[in-house]
Amino acid sequence: MSPLPQARLEALHARYRGTVYPLPGPLWRGRLFWIGFTACFLAASAHLGLSPLRFWAGLGDLGIIAGQMWPPTHKGFLPEYLGALGETLAIAFLGTLAASLISLPLGFLGARNVIPNWLIHFSLRRGLDVVRGVDVLVWALIFVSVVGLGPFAGILAIAFNDTGVLAKIYAEAIENADRKASEAVRAAGGDEADVARLAILPQVFPVLISNSLYFFEANTRSATILGVVGAGGIGYFLADRIRVSAWSDAAFIILLILPTVAMIDVLSRWLRRLALGR
């Protein structure tokens, strides 16, 4: 197939404006957008002090680090590392469990079909937004200064942060529950508590469990770095080894973390499928 002759293209363009060649208006609007976007990107990079020169210089150092990471060693600290890894899992587990338990009543309170009062609904949702707006590491740092160094601060931080997200998801799941079951319980003479327990909870329970498991997965990842701010877990050792430039030890710890996270992912995916009955 040979391309159309120029004269034919011109004729087509005159007839179907904007299909053969773009119109100058949209064309330049698109070009200007990308020129502006690139300018913004370059200006932002310059403001942050990014430069190719620094990048190449740093890359050399990074290469040296990578070279010293092999072979990974534990220098006899394996029991400590495994203990810290267990602590990480414990933080994620207890944090998620606590958040789920707190989110359950909050979810019912925040659901419009259970509590029709818009004031409670609105203030609860905004409160949860505030909790959600800040990274879990900030809460961890704050809880460290409230209850002291250690995994307890990490558990509280995860519980607090996840309540902000889980309560909202729980509330939405409860709002989406089929209301026919609620009407049946009411018709049989049940009060609001009976409706919540016998009509809504059985419907939403699998969804709640599945979401909590998903958060357990995500929390296992965040719990690995809580130790950087002193809130327990393997992150403490990792940050410490990197600070003293013990690269092979750091590599060993990372090689411990990666399969653990992958294992929790597989386990949680299996349990989620079980909970949803699929």
Partner: peptide
């Protein structure tokens, strides 16, 4: 591998290689 290693861990390494400041974070 890129998404399993947390940002903060990358940052710890990069602060060492590229120095303190936004470049390591970016």
């Amino acid at each position: 591998l890129l998404r399993t290693v947390p940002e903060l861990v990358f940052a710890l390494f990069f602060v060492f290689a590229f120095g303190l400041g936004p470049m390591a974070g970016v």
